[in-house]
Amino acid sequence: MLKDITLGQYFPGNSFIHRLDPRTKLLFIIVYITALFVSKSYVTYGILLLVLAVSIAVSKIRLSAIFKGLKPLMFIMIFTAILNLFYTKGGTELFSFWVFTVTTKGVEFAFFMVLRIMMLISGTFLLTYTTTPMALTDGMELLLTPFKKLHVPVHEFSMMMSIALRFIPTLIEEADKITNAQKARGADFETGKLTDRAKALLPLLVPLFVSAFRRADELAIAMESRCYHGGEGRTRMKKLKMAAPDILTLVFSALMLAVIIILARFGI
């Protein structure tokens, strides 16, 4: 169950998308998300869906991996859909009962909302699937470098991110182990009222926290032993370099955003 979480997972590969600079990918995803929020019509959504589909195809990431990532978010999507379905006014009334009215506009809104969330998340997953966590956090750190002048702890932030990503699988494994150990003592995580179930989580959460603190402690000592002393004077083995494909991708992303904005301006 817990092992199904795909956040932070990296699928090794050597596609065009894998080879792009992480900064390019990060910028692209930001532009893409902006475009999604500007988008209002079938045409613009169609264009963005096409871009996503081509990117997934180029990356050679299997569609099933993307869907697997979407699964845990199903609840949010359904919730959003229902909210939009019932609370959007306007358009022709389709049917109504009690205080709820469903209109054509509502259906359209719900559809776009869900589509938007799905595309947004798929795009983000494509980014994490094709970029090593290290490259991702390095890219983030470099993109945010200007903020260092404002005393924003950019290096610390990216270090924290990369350590968090590194420890997600370890902690998931540990949570599974502790769950089994408590089940072996008769702990029941699956039945009972909501309050009972929340209480039943204590035997899992307490050891998990204790262990996370112990790990943090040991990791800090190990990092110090390996001469870690903050971002000052640090170098990188893998220097990020923008190459022709990166420039091309960025130019393309700017064009894409421009087209979407212009189309949206004309009400399409």
Partner: peptide, 15 residues
């Protein structure tokens, strides 16, 4: 309850 299982490093389950 009939088969008591003590896992590896069981001290990590104390809560």
């Amino acid at each position: 309850f009939k088969v008591g299982l003590v896992f590896q490093y069981p001290e990590y389950q104390l809560f």
